[in-house]
């Protein structure tokens, strides 16, 4: 009778394990493809990549130490943040793009709707503006860079605020909050630098 009970217990165990395995296979992974977390990680990575690109451009276009240091700061910190967000998507086992459209996770957030297919995200510079930046040099390049980066940061702060309001994952919340604070203070810094340079130019 003992062996019969053992067999019964073993049978139930196998059954439970099988059910758990199927449930895990089908529903496993806690962050979904359409979540705020995944959308934020993808779209903010894309947004950051352009800031990194603009920062490298301006470092080649001016010798001004203050602007070059600011650009270095933006390029290195935002590259590292892209790495963090990329690692989240990999850990969650989610794609790095959402072909169904950018910014869908922000729909319903005050002042925001889904970005039309092919349209840039808020604050992003156009290809023409980047071309202009590549062609400029010295003070003119600095002024253009500061204007483009202020707008870029404003778009970034809005997007990060949406993640602070809606994300449930604590690591996403935390990084988004540091982006809101960090980029806000950089906007203030850049506004000052811009005013200074525009005054000099007369």
């Amino acid at each position: 009778m003992t062996s019969r009970r053992t067999f019964t217990a073993a049978g139930i165990l196998v059954l439970a394990a099988a059910v758990a395995f199927v449930v895990y296979t089908v529903f496993g992974g806690k962050v979904s493809d359409s979540s705020v977390e995944a959308g934020f990680a993808r779209d903010m990575s894309s947004h950051h990549r352009q800031a990194v690109e603009m920062s490298f451009i301006i470092r080649d276009r001016t010798d001004d130490e203050d602007v070059r240091r600011l650009a270095y700061d933006i390029a290195t910190s935002q590259s590292a943040q892209i790495g963090m967000m990329t690692a989240w998507l990999d850990a969650w086992g989610l794609p790095h793009v959402d072909p169904a459209g950018r910014m869908r996770w922000m729909s319903g957030h005050p002042g925001h709707t889904t970005v039309a297919p092919g349209a840039p995200m808020p604050g992003m510079a156009t290809d023409a503006q980047l071309k202009e930046l590549r062609a400029a040099h010295g003070r003119a390049a600095e002024i253009l860079f500061l204007k483009l980066m202020i707008a870029h940061h404003q778009g970034g702060v809005d997007m990060a605020r949406a993640a602070v309001d809606r994300a449930k994952e604590p690591e996403v919340q935390r990084l988004a909050r540091t982006m809101v604070n960090g980029q806000r203070s950089e906007i203030e810094l850049m506004n000052g630098m811009l005013a200074e340079r525009e005054k000099q130019q007369g």
């Binding site: 990575s45 894309s46 990549r49 790095h96 793009v97 072909p99 459209g101 950018r102 297919p117 092919g118």
Partner: peptide, 10 residues
């Protein structure tokens, strides 16, 4: 196809 490439990085 153009729209797809404009909407997706990489």
């Amino acid at each position: 196809l153009k729209q797809i490439v404009q909407s997706n990085d990489y």
